[in-house]
């Protein structure tokens, strides 16, 4: 019995579609993107449909996630960062639901694809650059010049530039790698369960051990799923905050 733990990450076309020479077939991944968006809309939509003053559990959860993101922006970006709220809330909920729904057995994890995470990170960095130049004009470039003696600047400015340029990479790879590693690990242990269970005799009994491990790792992955969504969102907030305030708040 051969099982490839990477098979779960394969993007498989469901409805072939080509636009302007590009393969944009509706894939299992696109399906899960719609499931994620649908789940968020359902969750938030149902929660806010009644708008009661004493919230139900669902409404309370929606309000908590709303205030969670609003507070995150308030602390990491500043009050003027609240105009990015819809974007950051969308980003956070999309990544969170992708991560969490990806834990369902047989599902596809949208954020386990570098193309997706890099596209998100690149958009964030583009937004940061555009915001920076719109707010400060050419003065935005001061972001790369920390307060230091001139001689040190020869060293510091390239470091700042490189660190800025690596942001989209670190931002995207962090999320991608976390999701990929976690799901791969789950699949590997799942393979152990099947292999041991099929081996017969005393080995079949041993298959309980990796089963318990899967349960434990799934709990850990739930934490990672939330944490990575949070990290992605808060880094976005911090980067936007830098674009808005340069180094003022230091």
């Amino acid at each position: 019995m051969k099982m490839n733990p990477m098979e779960q990450f394969a993007v498989k076309p469901l409805i072939p579609l080509h636009i302007a020479g590009y393969d944009v077939s509706f894939t299992n991944q696109a399906l899960w993107m719609f499931i994620v968006v649908g789940a968020i809309t359902l969750f938030m939509g149902l929660a806010v449909s009644k708008r009661s003053l004493v919230p139900s559990r669902m409404q309370s959860m929606a309000e908590i996630s709303y205030e969670f993101v609003a507070n995150m922006i308030g602390t990491a970006t500043g009050e003027d960062g609240l105009r990015f709220f819809p974007f950051i809330f969308t980003l956070f909920m999309f990544v969170l639901f992708s991560n969490v729904l990806g834990l369902l057995p047989g599902s596809f994890t949208v954020t386990s694809q570098i193309a997706v995470t890099f596209a998100l990170a690149a958009f964030v960095i583009l937004l940061v650059i555009v915001t920076g130049f719109l707010t400060h004009g050419i003065g935005f470039l001061k972001l790369f010049v920390p307060k230091a003696p001139a001689l040190l600047l020869l060293l510091l400015v390239p470091i700042e530039v490189i660190s800025f340029l690596t942001r989209p990479i670190s931002l995207s790879v962090r999320l991608f790698a976390n999701m990929l590693a976690g799901h791969t690990m789950l699949k590997v242990f799942a393979t152990f369960v099947i292999a041991l269970g099929g081996a017969g005799g005393a080995l079949s009994l041993l298959s309980v051990a990796p089963m318990f491990l899967i349960v434990a790792i799934t709990a850990l992955e739930l934490l990672v799923a939330f944490l990575q969504a949070y990290v992605f969102a808060i880094l976005t907030c911090i980067y936007l905050g830098e674009a808005l305030h340069l180094h003022d708040h230091h």
Binding site: Y22, A30, M33, V36, G45, F94, V116, A119
Partner: peptide
């Protein structure tokens, strides 16, 4: 290209819904 295409569409939908 396909991934980014569908990502842009779904994110845009979600963004508008939330916004």
């Amino acid at each position: 290209p396909g991934q980014v295409f569908w990502l842009v569409i779904t994110m845009a939908v979600l963004f508008v819904v939330i916004w």
